[in-house]
């Protein structure tokens, strides 16, 4: 009996193949050169082509592979990445202290069982530690408040 088609493996391979194709198309505008004197476009075009081939090959090889549960969970992705994003947005605008407090408060929500007291204590402790270690101690040029 034929095993069922593994769409997730095929899709992953095709996504990579598309990335390779995109890289090749973009690299067409760079001078290609000759084998002796390669232009900046030579290697990217070859790499893009290789990615297309390998992507198609993985899709083909994976088409009958037994399906593995992906096990993706949106909650940590949202809060962890959200926390970092807020830090990036605030660091040059409001400064180190607000950015770090916000990072910890948001990122801590990735864990369901953390209490508000723990979150607040952790945020204050890390901000304090970071301020004294990195800004006062190591002299990293970041403003504690403001830009």
């Amino acid at each position: 009996m034929k095993p069922p088609r593994n769409t997730q493996e095929i899709a992953a391979g095709l996504v990579f193949a598309a990335i390779g194709l995109g890289a090749m198309l973009l690299a067409r505008s760079y001078p290609f050169g000759t084998v002796v004197r390669m232009g900046p476009g030579f290697v990217p075009i070859m790499l893009g082509g290789l990615i297309v081939v390998l992507g198609l090959a993985t899709a083909w090889q994976g088409r009958t592979a037994p399906k593995v549960a992906l096990n993706l969970s949106p909650r940590p992705v949202m809060f962890v990445l959200g926390g970092i994003l807020i830090w990036v947005l605030l660091i040059d605008r409001l400064g180190f202290v607000p950015a770090t407090l916000a990072l910890v408060v948001v990122a801590a929500q990735a864990e369901r069982d953390i209490t508000w007291f723990e979150t607040a204590a952790l945020a204050v402790a890390l901000t304090g530690l970071g301020y004294f270690l990195f800004i006062r101690g190591l002299g990293i040029p970041i403003a504690a408040f403001g830009s």
């Binding site: 962890v80 926390g83 970092i84 994003l85 830090w87 990036v88 660091i91 040059d92 770090t100 990072l103 910890v104 990122a107 801590a108 990735a110 864990e111 069982d113 953390i114 723990e118 952790l122 945020a123 890390l126 970071g130 990195f134 990293i140 040029p141 970041i142």
Partner: peptide
């Protein structure tokens, strides 16, 4: 639950301080 936010903080400041670049953290 206490460890992960702390590690994220160290990652952010560590990467940022290489070039003082918010883009690197993105």
């Amino acid at each position: 639950r206490l460890l992960f936010p702390a590690i994220l903080f160290f990652i952010c400041i560590g990467v940022y301080s290489v070039n003082n670049s918010a883009f690197d953290v993105m």
